[in-house]
Amino acid sequence: MSTPTQFGYVALIGLPNAGKSTLMNTVIGAKVSIVTPKVQTTRRRVLGVFIQENTQVAFLDTPGIFTPSTRLDKAMVNVALQAIQEADLVCVIIDACKRLTDHERLLTIAKQSGRPICVVLNKVDKTPKDKLLVLAQTISETYGFNEIFMISALKAQGTEDLLKYINQKMPEGPWLFEEDDLTDLSLQDLATEFTREKLFAFLHQEIPYGLMVQHELWKEDTPGKVQIYQRIVIEKNNHKGIVLGHNGTLIKKVREAAQKDIRQLIQKKVQLFLQVVVKEDWK
């Protein structure tokens, strides 16, 4: 008699830059969600598929939960709140380097959701052990969460115990994704996300938050070679020169870095073409 399969959704929620995307990429073993030092990098729900023995887990990487001020901000937070309701298990990612008071709203949202919850203290490699123990005890006593894990998503420390627990919590059911699926994002979506990641990395201050990257065209006329056309949409005309850089130097760096990541993903030669356009109030 064959062992029944298990499948479930796991929502990763947390403050901006808590390490949600890093954790998912580490677990999946591939970059399916972009990571930058800037907050609010993740703007939409990104799904990553993890398989261990008879269990398939669909991780939902969500935008950070914060106090929204624009329509885009509100949409991002709503994505995270919706993922909580869709999930079979919610992992609350806590940046152990921050104060517990910074996470009070997040932990309250998780508590009031009524969903199965586990708490993940991330960045333990940067946090004193005594502080971690106090943090875990306080969370348990204040919010009643008893399943608390300590990990370093960046260094893949402590993730094995977390994954073992997650697998045990997944309900019986058929797998919804093929064995070789990593994500539900298309290659075109992943390519635009890689470009946005590089823009966040090379640009400073508020400019990255005032832009988006749109897919225009994907051409594969020659076997083993892909031409990709994307459009970078910005809010203000005076930002165009900053995005392009002196004599186009910055946009060239962005193109080359994104091209490299896309090439590693699809294992083909890549030519990436970027156009910068102004569209006021796109957010």
Rank of each mutant, 00 (worst) to 15 (best):
L135T: 15
V134F: 11
T192H: 03
G210Y: 02
Y229K: 08
I139M: 12
Q157C: 07
Q259E: 11
Q230R: 02
E193G: 10
L190V: 03
L199I: 09
G248T: 01
I139L: 12
V213P: 14
M170P: 09
R255F: 00
Q227E: 10
L182E: 04
N146C: 08
D180H: 06
A156H: 14
H204E: 06
R263I: 00
L265Y: 05
R263A: 15
E172G: 01
Q188C: 05
L176M: 02
L133F: 10
T183E: 04
I151D: 14
A136K: 15
K219L: 10
G173D: 02
E216Y: 02
N146Y: 07
E160A: 15
T138S: 14
F200R: 01
E141C: 11
G173M: 03
I148S: 12
Q205Y: 07
Q227V: 05
D130S: 11
S140V: 00
E193R: 02
K236F: 05
K155G: 10
G210K: 02
E160Y: 06
Q137T: 07
W175L: 03
L135E: 12
G241H: 01
V226P: 09
D161Y: 05
T183I: 03
N167H: 05
Q214H: 09
T138L: 10
I151H: 14
Y165M: 08
L250I: 07
R263N: 08
L185M: 07
T138K: 13
I266P: 06
G158D: 12
P223S: 04
L133Y: 05
Y165T: 09
L265E: 04
A257S: 11
Q227G: 12
L244C: 07
K268M: 08
V270N: 11
Q137C: 06
K253Q: 14
L199S: 09
Q227C: 03
N238C: 01
P171S: 04
V243L: 13
L133A: 09
D184I: 01
D161S: 14
E193T: 02
L163I: 06
M150I: 08
V270Q: 09
L135H: 07
V213N: 11
E206H: 03
T159C: 15
K269M: 04
D189W: 00
M170H: 04
K155M: 11
L185S: 11
A153S: 15
K236P: 04
